[in-house]
């Protein structure tokens, strides 16, 4: 799976969990919790969605790595190639 595909999936799941946010102009390095006001429940829902869609295992301790768009794509790429 390419990074572009992973990025697309990440954004799709994020928008499904939080349809009321606007990602336009949010840089890849921005903490989404601050940039678009995601709370712990949103992050958790996002982890669940990604886990179910991609089949990648995401330990709780790694959740923090998914809080930026760039970080998330990199992490997912690494985890999905590992499995």
């Amino acid at each position: 799976m390419t990074r572009d595909q992973l990025r697309h999936i990440f954004i799709e799941e994020l928008m499904s969990i939080a349809p009321d946010i606007d990602l336009d102009g949010v840089p890849d390095t921005a903490d989404l919790r601050d940039a678009v006001d995601l709370d712990s429940m949103d992050i958790m829902n996002l982890l669940i969605a990604l886990h179910q869609r991609l089949g990648v295992d995401i330990p709780e301790a790694d959740a923090i790595k998914l809080t930026t768009l760039g970080g998330a794509v990199a992490y997912l790429a690494e985890r999905s190639s590992a499995t």
């Binding site: 429940m41 958790m44 669940i48 886990h51 295992d57 709780e60 301790a61």
Partner: peptide, 17 residues
């Protein structure tokens, strides 16, 4: 809770709230 969540897939984890 950390211990509990560490063993679980995301959909079974529990938030401290």
């Amino acid at each position: 809770l950390d211990e509990l969540n560490a063993q679980r897939p995301p959909e079974e984890r529990v938030l401290i709230g």
